[in-house]
């Protein structure tokens, strides 16, 4: 098994930490993992993305140009990464702020209204965990038990009281993710 994922959105949306939690979940499941952020003179409101690879075998390149899955949280990232999903791959996006929706018919497209749902749950900061839940529903490559371990490892101890809220957000994400169009 090898899963190559790009997660992209605005800085501050929790893109990098979603990637880290996913990667740590992989570590807890004894997989090989890599987490490679775009780094640079970026700031809140700018774009942020991270490439995460989970594999049963040694990982070669941590920087990739095509992906099995793209998790997209803003329009710029959708424009940039929609063409880079491998045919038959997965594109999961949050429709908040999206004006041009995905158009490809050779990939599996899913939508998750995570920003809206996080606002409804009155915890906007867990938006990224709702998205993660949506992804894990589509591709259950790591056991929930290991996701929770990964989450615990990723959060500093002073934030451990937030674990139940994050778990709830992941569960909610699994419930609300929508199929838009699938490759038959």
């Amino acid at each position: 098994m090898k899963e190559e994922i790009i997660i992209a959105g605005f800085g501050g949306q929790g893109v990098l930490s979603m990637g880290k939690i996913l990667a740590y979940s992989g570590v807890m499941q004894n997989m090989e993992v890599s987490w490679m952020p775009s780094y640079g003179p970026e700031m809140r409101g700018g774009t942020a993305n991270v490439t995460v690879v989970l594999s049963d075998h040694r990982i070669s390149s941590p920087i990739l140009h095509t992906f099995d899955t793209a998790i997209i949280l803003n329009q710029q990232s959708l424009d940039k990464f929609e063409p880079k999903v491998k045919p038959g791959g997965v594109l999961l996006y949050d429709s908040n702020g999206i004006t041009r929706h995905p158009e490809r018919d050779d990939i599996n497209i899913y939508r998750i209204d995570a920003t809206e749902e996080a606002a409804r749950m009155k915890s906007t900061k867990t938006m990224n965990m709702i998205v993660l839940g949506g992804y894990l529903k589509i591709k259950p490559i790591v056991e929930m038990e290991n996701v929770l371990k990964g989450l615990k490892k990723s959060l500093p101890e002073r934030h451990h009281h937030l674990l139940p809220m994050n778990e709830k957000a992941i569960q909610r994400g699994k419930e609300i993710v929508l199929e838009v169009s699938l490759v038959t």
Binding site: V27, V33, S34, W35, M36, Y39, I59, P62
Partner: peptide
């Protein structure tokens, strides 16, 4: 280099 320095692995 910046890639190995910035990336996370096990």
């Amino acid at each position: 280099d910046g890639m190995i320095g910035q990336m996370m692995e096990k």
